Amino acid sequence: MSTEVKRLFNRENIEVYINRPRSMDDILHKSVTEYGQKEAVRLEEDSLSYKELEEKSFLLASILYHEYQIKKETALV
Rank of each mutant, 00 (worst) to 15 (best):
F58D: 14
A61G: 11
S62K: 06
R7L: 12
N10F: 06
E52N: 00
Q69I: 05
E34S: 13
T3P: 04
H66R: 15
E39W: 01
P21R: 00
I27Q: 10
S2K: 14
Y68A: 08
V77H: 13
I70D: 03
S31R: 01
F58E: 09
K51A: 04
V77L: 15
P21V: 03
A75R: 11
I27K: 03
S47W: 08
E4W: 11
E4M: 15
L64T: 01
K71A: 15
E39Q: 10
N13F: 05
F58M: 04
R11F: 04
F58K: 14
L64P: 02
R22Q: 11
S23D: 13
S57R: 00
T74M: 13
M1Q: 10
L8F: 06
D26G: 08
L43E: 03
Y68H: 14
E4H: 08
K30N: 15
V5S: 14
E4C: 15
S62A: 07
E44T: 07
R11Q: 15
S47M: 05
T3E: 08
D46E: 12
M1Y: 12
K56Q: 12
S23G: 12
T3Y: 08
S31A: 14
E67V: 01
S2T: 12
D46V: 03
L64D: 03
I18W: 14
Q69C: 09
A40E: 01
